[in-house]
Structures are given as C-alpha cells and as structure tokens.
Design a protein around this nucleic acid. Structure first.
Length: 118
DNA sequence: CATCTGACCTAGT
DNA sequence: AACTAGGCCAGAT
C-alpha cells in the first residue's frame, strides 16, 4: 500500500522486518543489535515500536525471537494472550526462566557478527 | 500545540 | 562500578 510514512521510516521498518525474519530458529536477537546492523545505532526503541506493528504482517515475523540486551522478555506483554512470547520460544527449543532467556549469551544471534551483513 | 511515554541502548560523570 | 543524561521517533494525552 502506498503509505504516507516518510521514506526513511518505511525503509527502517522494512529492514527491521527483514533482519527479524533472518533470525534462525532456536536463536534470539536483541533490539540494539538489530538497530546497529541496519545502521541505526541507538534507535533500539524504534525497533520495538516497529515490531509492535509486525503482528498483522505476512509472512509472520518471529518477533518473539527479539529480546532486550539482557535477555529479558520485555515485550511479552504486547503479545497475544493465546501466543505468549515464552511459549513461542520454548516451542523452538529456547529455555525461558523468569521472563529471561537461559543461556542468552550463547543463543544471542547478532546479525552483524554472525552474518556480517553489509 | 506541549509534554510524556515507550518491546532500548550508549556514553558521560 | 553505580548513576544520570541523552538520543532515537512516533503515538498518546
């Protein structure tokens, strides 16, 4: 659809979606890493805001694989009640304990480091 | 129209 | 090492 959004914002959203879809199953990423990888370092907040609108997007965006830099499931409250973040992660083999990803350091998938994009 | 908040992070003191 | 402040930008009040 021809959105009235600014081009830069549109591209930002597009990039966030693209990166998020690249997160392998069983791995997790973080807002800051994603923001950094798309050249928007420090704009981690925007990433979360963009992901908030990813629920009605197809193909589905694995937004549940994105947590904050401490491995905390900060965005769990924004997920549908029938599809909790925790549940989705566990279904992919990611252990979650107390709203926190277990072995986050090992499971953390950084787009810039793992794939060396750009 | 002004101000604050928000799925956050980095940098400076 | 702990705390504060600033930045990002769009939506909500």
């Amino acid at each position: 659809m021809a959105t009235l959004s600014k081009p830069s914002a549109d591209q930002f959203r597009n990039d966030v979606y693209a990166i998020t879809r690249l997160i392998p199953v069983g791995r997790v990423s973080s807002y800051g890493s994603i923001a950094s990888s798309i050249g928007a370092k420090g704009a981690a907040r925007r990433v979360g805001w963009v992901l908030n609108g990813s629920f009605s997007v197809v193909p589905a965006i694995p937004a549940h694989r994105v947590v904050n830099r401490l491995g905390l499931l900060t965005g769990r409250v924004h997920f549908p009640e029938n599809m909790p973040m925790e549940e989705l992660l566990r279904a992919e083999g990611v252990a979650v304990e107390q709203n926190r990803v277990v072995n986050f350091e090992e499971l953390h998938w950084d787009p810039m480091v793992e794939c060396e994009i750009e």
